[in-house]
Amino acid sequence: MASILDQLDRLGDEHPHKLLYSYLDLNGNPIESYTYASFLRRTKAIAGHLRKGRRFAAEDRILLAYPPGLEMICAFFGCVRAGLIPVPVYPPSSRGFQSALYKMVHIAKDCQAAGILTSKDYHASLKTNLTRSGVSASGVDVDYISGLPWIVTEDFVDTISDEPFFGTSEILFLQYTSGSTMEPKGVMVTHENILETCPLVIDHPSPVVVSWLPQYHDMGLIGCYLYPALKGGTTYGFAATDFIQRPVLWFDAIQTYRATATAAPNFAYDYCLRAKRLSKESLEGCDLSSLRVLMCAAEPVKPDTFTRFLEAFQPFGLKSESFYAAYGLAENTLAVSLGGRNIVSVNKRALALGKARMTTEVSEIGGATQIVSCGTPSRVLTLRSWIRNSTSH
């Protein structure tokens, strides 16, 4: 059976000292880093401790509840190597705590989780938030996740060589949908899914990726952490909250590390265009010419935002062929279509009925709206005729 571990282990042997992951603070300073070799050692250590004492059975589902950082990625690969199935979840924080906790409990029950991996600080903050919120009386079955073993992984640093391992599961991990419109639903992502779709999304070797996308979301986890690793690349990550607080960090990291790929939802491009978010002084010397891929996805792509962002950043080296819209979903392991750059005018009423009717006459302008192309479907897919308003993911 094909395994992403085979690919990663091979790359670790070929260039053990090459940087694989680096995580940055608000000022762009690296606070965590792993080479290919050190990352493999770390994941093997976690895997050994997870198997110690045979606390889990083969293919047990294990929730990953971590704040932004590299420990979640280490735990993900540790689970895979131990023959367990990781399930990344949004870690409930003080903001929107009850709703996020409800989703976490739902996911734990739905996948019949056998345990939860987390960090020491996050586990402590979760307990504090539970006490403050009084969520136990709100109908959320906190006892369910409280009764599961919570395992802090930071201390798993020594390798346990004599611990028996299961073979890797055919299912690589469970990717749950956001739950924004209905209960979160789990998608079974296999090793084969990732290995087949990786070259379709990242078309160049040794990519350098900059990402602030959430690591529990498919675009962040798959597109910015799994794919680059399998292509022999490097990912520089930082927290989404740091992007919101200091959006120039995104551009600084792209320039500093000569990034070849990055991605974000439409709101981020719009956010960067707002007055006073990025000053002229902060963009002095900004150079985006290294980018081969600047993807706009994960939510509706607005024509005005798309056009204005391209116009605003072409003077800083952004190439029009690098900037495009895409559509995807967790059920298809990230990408369905790529390379959307065309903007067309269509009839609003027809669009509401699920039909794309182009407007070509001046008299039709009042009843028209613009939509951005989602690009060309992947060559491995067969798509039926469909339309989802003017959304792009």
Rank of each mutant, 00 (worst) to 15 (best):
P303E: 01
P228D: 01
G375E: 03
T235V: 11
Y34D: 04
R388Y: 12
V301S: 10
L353A: 13
L20C: 11
V362K: 12
N129I: 07
Q7W: 09
A275P: 12
W150T: 04
P300H: 07
L8P: 04
D60V: 00
I343Q: 02
C79F: 08
D162F: 03
I145A: 09
V248D: 14
I85H: 03
A297R: 09
T131K: 05
L172D: 01
T256L: 10
G48P: 05
K319H: 13
I151S: 04
S146N: 13
F309A: 11
A82Y: 02
D9T: 15
A297M: 06
A356F: 07
H123S: 13
Y271T: 06
V380W: 05
R357Q: 05
G375M: 02
A57W: 06
H123G: 07
A240P: 14
D304A: 11
Y236S: 04
R55C: 08
A261C: 11
A312I: 00
L64W: 04
G366F: 10
I145P: 02
L130P: 07
E32Y: 02
L117F: 09
G375P: 05
L288Q: 04
R341C: 07
G83E: 04
S22L: 03
K52L: 14
D110F: 07
A259R: 05
E321L: 06
L291C: 05
D287C: 01
D270S: 13
R349F: 13
G96V: 08
Y36G: 00
I116M: 08
K319G: 13
L294R: 01
V87C: 09
P377W: 10
L172C: 00
L20M: 15
L226C: 13
A45F: 01
D203Q: 14
E321P: 00
S3V: 01
V248N: 12
D13R: 15
A268S: 14
L84I: 10
F323S: 08
L195P: 03
L8Q: 08
R51C: 08
D218F: 14
D242Y: 15
P184F: 07
P205N: 05
T382A: 11
Y236C: 06
E32G: 08
A326R: 00
G134P: 10
A298Y: 01
S282E: 15
S38C: 06
Y122P: 02
A58C: 13
K185I: 10
A47G: 14
M188H: 14
T262C: 08
R132N: 12
S392M: 09
H49Y: 12
C224G: 09
L70W: 03
N129T: 09
L172V: 10
T262W: 01
W212L: 01
K231M: 11
G285S: 11
E170R: 13
